[in-house]
Design a protein around this nucleic acid. Structure first.
Lengths: 236, 236
DNA sequence: TCATGGTGTGAACTTGGTTCATAATATGCA
DNA sequence: TGCATATTATGAACCAAGTTCACACCATGA
């Protein structure tokens, strides 16, 4: 009877074990020193068994990235469905993203590495597709927020489509984090509070789009209140 | 007499040869397939000789990145010294950056890879420092533009310092390019004209900073004219 | 109980970065 | 010029780590 399904469950549990352990090893010793043989050993399996789940080391890394990306996207979906104005929701994307990156310090590094030509092109197409498939619903959800704002007249589409508009906050957030994370760059710049800088620029961009209601960029208290509200209502 | 200096020149020429050839190999066959032994052979030298110039493959990659970054930074310095208003210069940063990335398609990929933990931490500290040293004068030059704008009252510093302010356009530009370059992401988004999207968002951000004179975001002709002027006066 | 198909194993294989003993060459001195 | 010595180039050998695969093991079903 359920012998086939049981086996399926066991396989999934083992894959989970591999992924969890890989994550731990990366956290403890860095991406640099992750070794397939050691990972297998740490899970009390032979190297070959590991390769029954992942076609290559790159494949494993993409799988790892996909898993976290899923959680990441779940947060974005929560933002899109949040019962707040469109402007607040757009800003919340940045706050939530920043929060997630801080909570999972190795995630951005892994992502950066995974999207590298060297890794991405080496992983199997199936793995790549599984990762990109995570993005589709999120893109749709956020595009929905933009469209809602356009309908309500809270932002003017202007020369950009909803998706192009959406790309702006995404880019600010991603770019800022990427720059701040690059060792040897931050040291050149005297950036006292990276988080605050990201938030302010996100608000600046939305203001530049004329997204209503406009934020008062100089009002630190209002910014803090907005961030706290998001943390309370979405990240608790 | 000059025997020592001649030797020095010869060494530098050889290093140049290695770098140029590496660049060609990467262009022709991709970063993925660059091999130290093949590179040495392609230059008619033994593997060991290559290692007299570069401590490791990662070291070579960082050296390669540094070289291009130098050209890249040269462009930014030109922008900072441009005889145009501060707003135009800030926007020109984005145009020039986009232009450079398009002109050197493998550059951004190389950079992305180089700043990866796996590569960056493996290169020698000297190489890393040589790369980051390229940035200092550029950061200073651009900060200068921001300060000039503040002095003239063309932008209000608000809650951000000149350097924090500068980080905004940088992040938009970097983030947007990074996102658009990520395979499997662009396909999800219906971005018709990536370049134009980058430019518009750069203007939107500067408008959000209230950087005078404000740009009319809806005016495509004005945008094109601004871009053309920059290409003519700075990139000819 | 035995035949069979599937699964796990880890030693062997492979690839490619790195080293180093040796050969070749240059330098300096008598 | 010729010899002793230091420097540099060489590429075969080395090594690390990802990947494979022949074999052992075990569960299933007749």
């Amino acid at each position: 009877m359920g012998t086939r399904e049981r086996r399926q469950r066991e396989l999934e549990a083992r894959e989970q074990l591999f992924l969890e352990t890989a994550r731990r090893l990366i956290r403890e010793e860095g991406l640099l020193t992750l070794q397939m043989a050691r990972l297998a050993r740490a899970c009390d399996y032979a190297t070959g068994t590991l390769y029954q789940h992942f076609a290559s080391k790159e494949d494993l890394l993409v799988a790892l990235a996909t898993q976290r990306l899923r959680e990441h996207c779940e947060l974005f979906r929560r933002v899109a469905a949040w019962s707040a104005g469109t402007r607040d929701r757009m800003f919340a994307l940045t706050v939530v993203d920043e929060h997630f990156s801080r909570r999972h310090p190795t995630y951005s590094k892994l992502m950066q590495y995974v999207f590298t030509e060297v890794v991405w092109e080496t992983a199997t197409p199936e793995r790549r597709e599984r990762l990109t498939a995570e993005l589709a619903p999120v893109v749709a959800a956020i595009t929905g927020v933009v469209e809602e704002a356009i309908e309500r007249g809270e932002v003017a589409p202007g020369v950009l489509s909803a998706q192009e508009l959406m790309l702006g906050p995404w880019a600010v957030c991603h770019g800022m984090q990427s720059l701040l994370q690059t060792r040897g760059l931050l040291s050149q710049l005297a950036i006292a509070a990276p988080r605050r800088t990201i938030y302010v620029h996100a608000q600046v961009l939305l203001n530049g789009m004329n997204w209503r209601p406009l934020a008062d960029i100089g009002d630190e208290a209002a910014l803090n209140a907005a961030v706290e509200r998001i943390e309370r209502e979405l990240l608790a």
